[in-house]
Design a protein around this nucleic acid. Sequence first.
DNA 1: GTGGTCTAGACCACT
DNA 2: GTGGTCTAGACCACA
Lengths: 128, 128, 128, 128
Amino acid sequence: MFQLDLKSRKSIYEQVIDNLKELIMTGRLAQGEKLPSVRELSKTITVNPNTVQKAYRELERQGYVYTTSGVGTFVADRNEIRADARELEEAKAAFDEAFREFLFLGLSYEESKAIALEIMEERRTSND
Amino acid sequence: MFQLDLKSRKSIYEQVIDNLKELIMTGRLAQGEKLPSVRELSKTITVNPNTVQKAYRELERQGYVYTTSGVGTFVADRNEIRADARELEEAKAAFDEAFREFLFLGLSYEESKAIALEIMEERRTSND
Amino acid sequence: MFQLDLKSRKSIYEQVIDNLKELIMTGRLAQGEKLPSVRELSKTITVNPNTVQKAYRELERQGYVYTTSGVGTFVADRNEIRADARELEEAKAAFDEAFREFLFLGLSYEESKAIALEIMEERRTSND
Amino acid sequence: MFQLDLKSRKSIYEQVIDNLKELIMTGRLAQGEKLPSVRELSKTITVNPNTVQKAYRELERQGYVYTTSGVGTFVADRNEIRADARELEEAKAAFDEAFREFLFLGLSYEESKAIALEIMEERRTSND
DNA sequence: GTGGTCTAGACCACT
DNA sequence: GTGGTCTAGACCACA
């Protein structure tokens, strides 16, 4: 289930975060469900425990999970998730840049928009 | 015209790239126009020449500008570019990821799409 | 194993690239194998780390290696690569130019071809 | 007749040299024929006179042309052309690298050789 | 320890 | 003057 690309320029802990978010947002990790322990997950995906640790810490900071000391880490209530403003701005900027790339590649505005809508539509179905 | 944020997580040379792309895409730097020299720009924005050069080099690699050594760096002819199939696929993948980022941040599909449309709409007007 | 010629017209980082390509193509650096770290290699060949890094970066861009930040740089899987049409065209153009260079130097067509065949023959044996 | 690519990474004077060599080797500039003056050529191809000057000097050094002070520059006897050893070695190295690029792109040795032969064959006919 | 970025300052080839 | 390369030395994030 975990997709890690060591060749990617994204840092590993970010990829771990993305994978876990994906699992949470799609419900494959249900509310209240226990995440694997840091050690366990680090073994499973053969990644340094510190890296997994960092991912869990960040997920907690963003409200996706909560940790009960000595017990484990659990999926939080989806409604509690609040992206901080800075992260949303970053995401918007990245999106803008990705869209502009179509235009730069020589596509017209309308062509670009059509492609964009198509891609987003695919996400709708895969996200249900 | 140049917006640099030294506190940003984005590296300086990436910000320089983004700023120049913006100027190029909006036509404020016209096709064939000479960009400021590496040294000149580095002075203007008080950044090390090497950093500016790195940005120029990357812009060249991406096809936004071309360089004639000893003469200067110029805005490339965008019409010459008609996207490579691979480049387009890469752009699509990047776009998909950028869109999913909204979902990751806890936004609903509809919220995400609304934001996306808004951002794209801004590009329509600024791109005319 | 490393041959650097400071007097050469080729820049140092290009020579570093050539040396590493040679090691990779001949299999002395196997697939997946870790390259020496930037600092390590820079010490070994007494060259500035930035110069080595530039070489690594370019090799990555060309698909010879991939980098995991904080871990190291590794020889890429060549089988994954099956040439892009454009890449192949570029390689053909470069080859054509290299061959014409013989003619420019005053060699006859037959002389040039003989030299070319000789060079290619060497690659056969060294590539097995 | 002159093909200059300002976007190329080759320096302009080298491109001028290559163009002139091409004209000489194919006989379109016959033995003893007068080359255009530096000023004239520089105007024709809109290049700095110093650049043309440098190209002429280099062509003379390599024996392609000879200059009679105050009279002009003339195409030398083709038999006098002698590439110096260093240049030939450079050309060989470049050729080797260009050929290896085929191998790296995933082509087999046989495929690569076939393509190489095909390209060289085209040069035979165009070089007569 | 590993790669990534940045600065300061220098030298070179080309135009 | 213009880009290209290189060195020395420093700091950062990541694993």
